[in-house]
Write a protein that binds this DNA or RNA. Structure first.
Length: 678
DNA sequence: CCCGTTGCGG
């Protein structure tokens, strides 16, 4: 029998290695035959150990080598890369350079990937330069690693520059570009790039489709998404958990929750990420109840909720003002996870939006490493509760730390001033924002200032401020001005604002209601009729008013004139009784808030049926005397209900807290915390 | 001579 030379005889042995014992045997054999120190065989042994997950043994072999060929280095570097130890990868890479070893395609590729996961753009660019010097500038592997580094660091334009110079591009390069665009908020370019790839005759796979699906999700185009879905099915592309989760996320982001559910139910294999996508999908679309049910269901299916699913659940609770459940989620988090600023800030938001401002503050004080977002959240909380002064003092406290206030901080601060009517403070800090902090004012900052000035009756100044804007003033600014004009009977400037608002063709019924209200005040009945006509057109966003009240740990939702409720009779009876008592102490219905063309008497009746009245009455009926009520409303509380609620608190001697879409109203003893300034 | 190295989800 003729013996093969040792290297050839070793090969099948190497391939057959499955456990440590057999690796050790081959290792010993190599040492005996003198092959271990020769050629590239040491690298194989390192790779073998690494493949079993035993990186320590791999490193021991590596360290004991008297001399190391490039394969030994690469095997070690790749082993660290698979273990996701980017720091070790870079350490070894630097050692290679110091020891004069020339890295090759694999080394550069893996080193660049390590920089990507560390978001270390500077080191990455150094490595890329050296790779180009060594002649790997046109290597697909090195190239796609650089593309990915740039993409993940948000430098898509640099990625494009590299991509355009690549002579050969494989599917991976295209995928990197497509998902890079999708994740940098450039979905159109993502889709274009995909089309370009198709034109060059490259067949896509499931992974590249994930990028395309993400692009569809961000595009908000409800047509392209299903097309991509159909294409996946037609081409019989592999649909794994990842692809299906992105599909589900895309449908949810575009508001198609039914389709999202369908995808989810059909998934043969689910995991925490898919559950998380489902939960935050429902939460972001305002379906808090479903989101929370899914959180519970997820656990009964044996999945432990992670950070993202819990954040989704918190968002859901905070949206509908479900304090009790929110608290239990908070408790769960404290028991289960590290309570960092991200979750802390979400819980601050929860408590503040559920009316528990002092709890929010307690929590804020407990967060050790507060970041800008935590501060902004707390400032916003004070703002929406109408505590402008506290917002300011917290802001001042923040300026003593080494955090720098950003555009969002000032948006929170200025809106806090506007909720409290602190005109002087608003002007002072608006100026400082521009001149000392060098933050160019954005639409939202102007909107706060215009709102602040206009509501205080200084509509002329507000108008001048709009004129001084160097960007085109948008809807928010004009609406703020118009609202201020309405409140103060400033018809001249109101006319300008009303025209501008109409020019911008808003698709929001509430805005038209304001315009119509203005024309009514100006006694321009023809214009009123014109606006009503626009409002009657179909396709306008018509959000039905809905109020939610928490009673004994359960949420109860009410729509306007909701006769389906089992206590409807009792509720109406109570409202009737209250109506009489209110009128006796001076309440007059403000029928101007009804926009339908009906008789005065009917208007009064309609006001009495507003969802918040039903929720308040239900709350009063089903809670003990003295219990504070928290009502959450999806629209702004109407002027008449605001007035009525004040009277009600006086009659029943209760505290009623109403959270509308903009801010909080704490009613007590006939007075509202907003000082009728909202 | 061939091998190792690059792209995906909430």
């Amino acid at each position: 029998m003729q013996l093969l030379p040792w290297p050839k005889r070793l090969k099948p042995l190497l391939l057959a290695c499955k456990d440590k014992a057999s690796i050790a045997k081959v290792h010993a054999l190599m040492v005996l035959t003198g092959l271990f120190d020769h050629g590239n065989f040491s690298g194989r042994v390192i790779a073998l150990y690494a493949r079993t997950g035993d990186i320590v043994s791999a490193r021991k072999v590596f360290d004991l080598l008297p001399q190391r060929g490039i394969d030994a280095w690469n095997a070690m570097v790749i082993a660290y890369s698979h273990k996701e130890y980017p720091v070790e990868v870079l350490n070894l890479y630097r050692r290679m350079i110091l020891e004069g070893v020339r890295p090759d395609s694999s080394t550069f590729t893996v080193a660049l990937k390590a920089c990507m996961s560390l978001s270390d753009l500077k080191t990455g660019e150094e490595i890329w330069c050296r790779a180009v010097d060594c002649g790997y500038g046109f290597d697909v592997f090195v190239g796609s690693s650089v593309l990915n580094l740039y993409a993940k660091c948000g430098k898509m334009d640099e990625a494009i520059a590299v991509f355009d110079k690549m002579p050969r591009r494989d599917l991976v390069c295209w995928t990197t570009m497509i998902s890079g665009f999708a994740q940098s908020g450039r979905p159109i370019e993502a889709v274009d790039t995909y089309r370009r790839m198709q034109k060059e005759g490259i067949e896509g796979d499931g992974i590249v489709m994930v990028g395309l699906i993400q692009a569809c999700a961000n595009l908000g185009d409800s047509k392209l998404g299903p097309c991509v879905h159909g294409y996946l099915i037609r081409r019989d592309l592999p649909m794994d958990v990842v692809v299906q989760t992105s599909l589900l996320d895309m449908y949810a982001k575009n508001g198609h929750l039914g389709l999202a559910c369908r995808v989810f139910k059909k998934m043969p294999c689910k995991n925490v990420v898919s559950w998380g996508a489902l939960i935050s999908g429902f939460a972001q679309n305002g379906f808090a109840g479903n989101a929370l049910e899914f959180l519970i269901e997820m656990q009964s299916c044996g999945y432990r909720p992670d950070l993202v699913s819990l954040l989704g659940a918190l968002l859901a609770c905070s949206q509908v003002g479900f304090l009790k459940l929110g608290k239990s989620v908070h408790g769960y988090i404290v028991r289960r996870l590290d309570f960092d600023q991200v979750l802390g800030t979400a819980v601050i938001d929860l408590y503040s939006k559920c009316g528990a401002l002092s709890w929010a503050r307690t929590l804020f004080d407990q967060i050790k490493a507060k970041d800008l977002i935590s501060w902004n959240a707390m400032i916003t909380s004070y703002g929406i509760h109408g505590h402008g002064k506290e917002a300011l003092s917290l802001f001042l406290e923040m300026t003593k730390t080494n955090l720098k206030p950003d555009h969002a901080t000032f948006a929170s601060l200025l809106s806090a001033f506007s909720h409290s009517g602190l005109v002087q403070e608003g002007q002072y800090w608006f100026n400082l924002m521009v001149n000392k902090y060098n933050i160019p004012p954005a639409e939202k900052h102007y909107a706060c200032m215009v709102d602040l000035l206009a509501r205080a009756g200084r509509v002329e100044e507000a108008h001048e401020l709009i004129d001084s804007m160097n960007t085109n003033p948008g809807l928010a600014v004009w609406v703020a001005l118009l609202a201020g004009c309405c409140k103060n009977g400033k018809l001249l400037i109101g006319e300008i604002a009303a025209k501008k608002v109409l020019e911008l063709n808003p698709d929001d019924l509430g805005v038209y209601a304001l315009v119509s209200n203005y024309f009514g005040k100006a006694r321009k009945w023809e214009e009123v009729a014109g606006v009503r006509k626009i409002m009657k057109k179909t396709g306008m966003k018509k959000v039905p008013g809905c109020s939610v009240v928490e009673v004994k740990g359960k949420l109860h939702a009410f729509l306007m004139e909701d006769k389906s409720h089992h206590q409807y009779e009792d509720i109406m009876q109570l409202l009737d009784k209250l109506d009489h008592e209110m009128r006796a102490i001076g309440y007059l219905p403000k029928t101007e808030f009804v926009l339908h063309d009906v008789e005065e008497e009917v208007k009064e009746k309609m006001l009495g049926n507003h969802s918040e009245r039903l929720a308040i009455a239900f709350g009063l009926l089903n809670t003990g005397p003295g219990t504070r009520l928290l009502i959450t409303k999806n629209l702004r509380v109407c002027g008449d209900c605001h007035e009525a609620t004040k009277f009600i608190t006086k009659i029943v001697n209760r505290e009623i807290v109403v959270r509308d879409v903009k801010r909080f109203h704490h009613f007590r003893n006939g007075i509202c915390s907003c000082g009728d300034y909202w």
